[in-house]
């Protein structure tokens, strides 16, 4: 089971992530009074991208390595997490620090790829992406640390279940903060600033195309799904652990509901500027610090 869980993790995220993008696109389309693409469209997009020419504008290896590293570190993240409460073989060789740093690694490789392309738009995008990482990483870290503080353990599974252990002030504050930060985690409007299509043409990805871009897209899909999943397991963990498959089903339902929220918010907001976003993130950091403070005090 512990070995099988690795593959279940992998399959769950790899197979479901593009579908969730499809859900998001369909919902956004409905809010915009459009038909929208079919739900399976993201899979087709990925297949199409894989078959396209791989256009490379930079000769250095960092440019080629970046999509691989981004994709693999994101996959590493989803490998390590306890899906439906089931730990797998690899969960034990990691803890929260590993998780946080692996998430950062994924962002980091996007940056390296962007800078390697030499395109000024990618440069602007990389600069914005880095600023977002700097301001948002603490929020994510603090969410997890709240769990660690409550459960007095630094392992992933206990920290995740620890957040909802007692529904005190800290739990609710952190829940609000996480929801406020969610759009930024999944980089949708109003916080899709690093990719801002209208100004900087998808920013860091401007020079990427074909299979390389497919990897980045896939990474982004999995990242979005991961953040939604994280919210479901850490804040909505009401179901007592029981049947693995039932739990998995419930988690999936939670993720779907969260994606509805993400799509609705994304479709009803303009994109912020990076300076406005940084101010907003600062507020989130302060709020989550307060939440941690409350958590430490046992509230």
């Amino acid at each position: 089971m512990k070995v099988a869980a690795i593959f279940i993790n992998l399959a769950y995220f790899l197979l479901l992530a593009p579908f969730l993008e499809g859900v998001m696109r369909k919902l956004t389309a409905r809010i915009q009074s459009r038909q929208g693409p079919p739900l399976y469209q993201p899979y087709l997009d990925l297949l199409k991208l894989l078959g396209k020419e791989n256009i490379v504008s930079s000769k250095n290896w960092a440019f080629r390595l970046a999509p691989l590293l981004a994709f693999s570190s994101m996959l590493a993240v989803v490998l390590l997490v306890p899906l439906a409460g089931a730990e797998n073989l690899l969960s034990h060789s990691s803890d929260l620090m590993t998780l946080i740093y692996l998430l950062t690694l994924s962002g980091f490789s996007i940056l390296v790829g962007a800078l390697a392309s030499g395109n000024p738009f990618a440069g602007v995008g990389a600069s914005r992406e880095m600023m977002t990482i700097i301001m948002l990483e603490p929020v994510l870290a603090m969410t997890l640390i709240l769990g660690a503080v409550k459960s007095e353990s630094f392992t992933i599974s206990s920290a995740l279940s620890g957040i909802g252990r007692n529904h005190g002030f800290s739990y609710f504050l952190m829940l609000v903060v996480y929801l406020l930060a969610l759009q930024a985690f999944v980089s949708r409007q109003p916080f899709d600033i690093p990719e801002a299509e209208v100004e900087i043409l998808e920013g860091p990805y401007v020079e990427y195309s074909g299979p390389n871009y497919a990897l980045f897209r896939y990474t982004l899909n999995i990242k979005r799904m991961f953040y939604a999943w994280l919210f479901v397991v850490s804040f909505l963990n009401f179901v007592p652990s029981g049947n693995f498959w039932l739990k998995l089903l419930l988690e999936t339902a939670g993720i779907l509901i969260l994606f509805v929220l993400i799509s609705v918010i994304g479709a009803t907001h303009p994109r912020f500027r990076i300076d406005q976003a940084i101010k907003y993130y600062t507020l989130l950091v302060v709020l989550s610090l307060i939440a941690i403070g409350l958590g430490v005090k046992g509230w």
């Binding site: 409905r30 809010i31 915009q32 009074s33 459009r34 038909q35 479709a267």
Partner: peptide, 10 residues
């Protein structure tokens, strides 16, 4: 948005 429904054609 929702009152308008889907207006684009298939």
């Amino acid at each position: 948005s929702l009152r308008a429904g889907v207006v684009t054609l298939h």
